[in-house]
């Protein structure tokens, strides 16, 4: 029985392959072509495909986390001034800063959500994403850990308390001083992200923040000088 089986395929008696063989061969060729296609598809990223989200230790994630916290304090100080000043010029400026930076925080938190990244750094250390830049090694003196525990320009709890406890022109001057220092302290972070973030939208927003805040810092200086105040050291 078994010896006759191989012969069955040769029944047409021709030298070429049988109908079954051709079918099998055709199927195999088709399958091979399909699998080659699948492998090529695995290796090649289509132009329309979104890029992989930035890693947790990327500039993009670090900037979005830290700048959200930095901005949140500016929003907090601006809201306080808007609610308590009697100076219409400062109330308008405070409202502008509050609205702008609150919206920017929303954008950055939205990106972090889309990237599946933590909303805020858990380590309690900031600016670790700037550690490898020449001249930007934000290590604190005596600390071997990268990053800092307090970002430049941030008001201390004591300074915020003084702001809340002051009134009138004294409050206005202190607010201008704190906001000016806050803008200036954030500038190196903005500049670094504008240059080094991998996501074009992150670079763009950082550059826009930098341009707007640099111009606004000039305005804050003017307003401070008009009210007899001097800038705080960074």
């Amino acid at each position: 029985m078994t010896t006759t089986e191989p012969g069955t395929a040769e029944e047409p008696g021709r030298a070429g392959p049988s109908r079954t063989q051709r079918l099998v061969m055709g199927g195999a060729v088709l399958l091979t072509v399909l699998l080659v296609g699948v492998i090529i598809g695995m290796l090649v990223r289509l132009p329309g495909q979104p890029p992989a989200p930035p890693a947790y230790d990327s500039v993009d994630v670090g900037f979005a986390q830290d700048m959200s916290i930095h901005h949140t304090q500016a929003v907090q100080m601006a809201a306080w001034e808007r609610d308590h000043t009697t100076d219409p010029v400062l109330r308008l400026l405070a409202t502008d800063i509050e609205d702008t930076q609150h919206g920017q925080v929303g954008r950055m938190l939205g990106w972090l959500e889309l990237w599946g990244a933590p909303t805020m750094p858990l380590s309690g250390r900031y600016m670790t994403w700037m550690a490898d830049a020449p001249g930007h090694d934000h290590r604190e003196p005596g600390s071997s850990e990268p990053g800092v525990t307090q970002m430049p320009g941030m008001a201390t709890a004591e300074e915020l308390r003084r702001l809340r406890e002051s009134t009138g022109p004294e409050m206005d001057v202190l607010w201008l001083q704190l906001m000016l220092r806050h803008h200036e302290g954030g500038a190196p972070m903005l500049a670094y992200a504008a240059d080094h973030a991998q996501t074009p939208q992150v670079r763009n927003l950082a550059a826009q923040m930098l341009a707007a805040q640099t111009a606004e810092s000039e305005y804050l200086r003017e307003l401070l000088a008009q009210r007899g105040g001097t800038p705080l050291p960074l």
Binding site: W80, P118, T119, M120, R164
Partner: peptide, 26 residues
């Protein structure tokens, strides 16, 4: 890490935490 500002677990994302004129922090 799991819950602070987790957009899936609190009802009002992007709502404020700052002090208002109606709540004296001190």
């Amino acid at each position: 890490a799991a819950l602070r500002l987790n957009p899936n677990t609190h009802p009002e994302p992007n709502a404020s935490c700052q002090e208002t004129t109606l709540f004296d922090q001190h």
